[in-house]
């Protein structure tokens, strides 16, 4: 049995992957494409929060919102200026894939020029440790978990109880019919991309006090949340959450047990899942 700290670490990782995977799936279900540069929005979230807190001295919770909004707008711009123009029928997913992958280079390059290459870290915003006798947890980490739960609940409310959520669900199920009923698919795409990127940014910013901030911090969460989506089933929001949870724990626990081969095990697991059940754990059966 791994020590409690490992499980806690797993939970924290789950939180990132969950939030990121949720945003990616949301974008996928509306636009029908994977946003490969999702990790870079996560990275921008971390960087914006770093500047807001360390340079401008804005309190952490407010800078979190600022970063979500700023990166959300960036995501909308990307959708409007690039994805919408590249997403053509037939080969659309391919061209969007290549465009967003090129954006990885673009964004990482921009970030290294502006931010510099070195790791930077925020000091703990909520210092102190909660001692539970058996093990202890820093308040910061508890904050991450609570924040993730809040974000998820908020997303649930937005998707299920608001008009825009209704529109989003309608477009994800039947874009043509939704369009005929007066829902602008283009506008919904932009909004959803904004929401997805804002979620990635929130994941990045809430992590900034715990993990170091640098221009390449988005790569691993990106791959991991991609795998989480695959495990959960591409296109399924529940799947994204469960996949994120599974992957976070798996990653930390396997890494504890068998060190460097953890990644190999993880990738083989993903390949096996895809071969046996391509639609993932929660996806609808394909045929």
């Amino acid at each position: 049995m791994p020590p409690a700290a490992i499980w806690m670490d797993g939970l924290i990782q789950s939180c990132i992957y969950m939030t990121m995977a949720f945003g990616m799936v949301l974008v996928f279900s509306i636009l029908g494409i994977l946003n490969w540069a999702h990790g870079q929005f996560y990275m921008f979230g971390g960087i914006v929060v770093y500047y807001a807190v360390a340079a401008a001295g804005i309190p952490f919770p407010i800078s979190l919102l600022i970063s979500a909004v700023a990166v959300g707008v960036l995501g909308m711009l990307v959708e409007k200026l690039i994805i919408e123009r590249v997403n053509v029928p037939i080969y659309g997913p391919l061209y969007v894939g290549v465009a967003t992958i090129s954006l990885i280079f673009f964004f990482e390059g921009a970030a290294s020029m502006l931010f510099g290459m070195q790791d930077k870290g925020l000091s703990m915003v909520y210092p102190g440790v909660l001692d539970l006798g058996v093990f202890s947890v820093s308040y910061q980490k508890i904050g991450v978990v609570i924040f993730t739960v809040i974000v998820m609940v908020a997303m649930y409310i937005v998707l299920n109880l608001t008009k825009i959520g209704l529109a989003i669900r309608a477009v994800s199920q039947e874009p043509v019919a939704a369009n005929l009923y007066g829902i602008s698919v283009k506008r919904i795409s932009v909004i959803v991309m904004g929401i997805g990127c804002a979620m990635a940014a929130m994941a990045g910013s809430i992590m900034a006090p715990i993990y170091p901030v640098n221009p390449f911090m988005g790569r691993i969460p990106m791959i991991m949340s991609l795998l989480a989506i695959v495990i959960g089933g591409i296109g399924s929001l529940t799947g994204a959450i469960v996949g994120g949870l599974i992957l976070g724990f798996l990653n930390s626990v396997i890494a504890y047990k068998i060190s460097y081969f953890s990644e190999v095990v993880l990738f083989i697991l993903v390949i096996l899942i895809l071969l046996v059940r391509p639609q993932g754990l929660f996806g609808a059966s394909l045929k």
Partner: peptide, 13 residues
């Protein structure tokens, strides 16, 4: 540093 990736990615996009 970084301008390489920036311009490369930008050109492709």
């Amino acid at each position: 540093y970084g301008i390489h990736a920036l311009l490369f990615g930008g050109a492709v996009v």
